[in-house]
Design a protein around this nucleic acid. Structure first.
Lengths: 160, 160
DNA sequence: CGCTTCTTGCTGCAGTGCAACATGAAACTG
DNA sequence: CAGTTTCATGTTGCACTGCAGCAAGAAGCG
């Protein structure tokens, strides 16, 4: 069965997190990039939420007895994670979310943002991508990375 | 001939501006909304640029001997203009651009953003919109307003 | 070991966006 | 037309976002 776009509220989060971390390790290793403790911690924070978090929200959640990381530190980690396709930025919210798919670099991703619970699902955009790129080229435009965000109500919230 | 998606650098800007203002007046009148001098001034500032402007950039350009408007003032005018479909917000840039089309409320608009000159073209998204909404619904998601921004190189920049 | 490169920490700042409250202007109403 | 309501603008203040520029440490390499 395909992965549900919106994880059920009662899904096995333990497992879903460790899978994502393992994938991150693998990808970094493959690219000779270093998934340092700090970067891993940022990623784990995002994974623990499944919802997009603002940078300062991440800082908040990372705070512990050793104090809290400086904003720039978190932004740098986020840059790294984004460069390696492990984290997405939700532009319309100035927030970040851990990527739970395995898309390579420039794949088109459609974000479905639930305005009720704030959850973000990543839908595949294959078909749409082609239509989009075609119509962009028709306008004499050479497209690079399309960005699609859709606000609405997710299936779980709808059921209530 | 259909309106070019990217206005040519040498287009009749005088005329294109006055058309847009006239349209704004008509729309506000039709909706019993007030296009006050301040709101009109913000709209004119955006029209004068044809490129997206940040809020503080707008303030800068509106500054005159009477001083400059406070940020909140401009944001409120922008909210008004957006509510009435006269201005769009480019999420990926935290910037605003005057709308040069006549779409009604919830139409899907595709923004083509030139990374070289910063110009933003509004392409129609009809076909894409349907595909998008269909695939969102397939995920059990009830979509509202899709947002699409594509970065690339516009036709005028490409020719150089 | 010494060099280079990458990562992290620190200070500081510019831009973004709005809440809360006060004032002023316009429209409505009896 | 005075009184009320509604909307627009002004003012203060603040929280969040994002990064530049420099300094110090850690990791990899010949």
């Amino acid at each position: 069965m395909p992965r549900a776009i919106f994880p059920a509220p009662d899904h096995d989060h333990e497992r879903c997190t460790s899978t994502a971390i393992a994938h991150a390790e693998a990808r970094c290793a493959a690219r000779a990039q270093r998934l340092t403790p700090l970067r891993r911690q940022v990623l784990e924070t995002l994974l623990a939420s499944h919802n997009p978090l603002g940078a300062y929200e991440i800082i908040e959640r990372m705070a512990d007895k050793n104090g809290r990381p400086a904003p720039i530190t978190v932004y740098r980690a986020l840059d790294f994670l984004r460069d390696n396709g492990l984290v997405h930025r939700i532009e319309s919210r100035n927030a970040f979310v851990a990527c739970v798919h395995n898309h390579s670099g420039d794949d088109l991703v459609v974000f479905l943002i639930c305005e009720r619970c704030g959850a973000v699902g990543e839908g595949p955009g294959g078909a749409v991508a082609e239509a989009l790129k075609a119509s962009a080229r028709a306008a004499g435009f050479s497209p690079k990375s399309p960005l699609i965000e859709i606000v609405g109500i997710c299936s779980h919230c709808r059921q209530r």
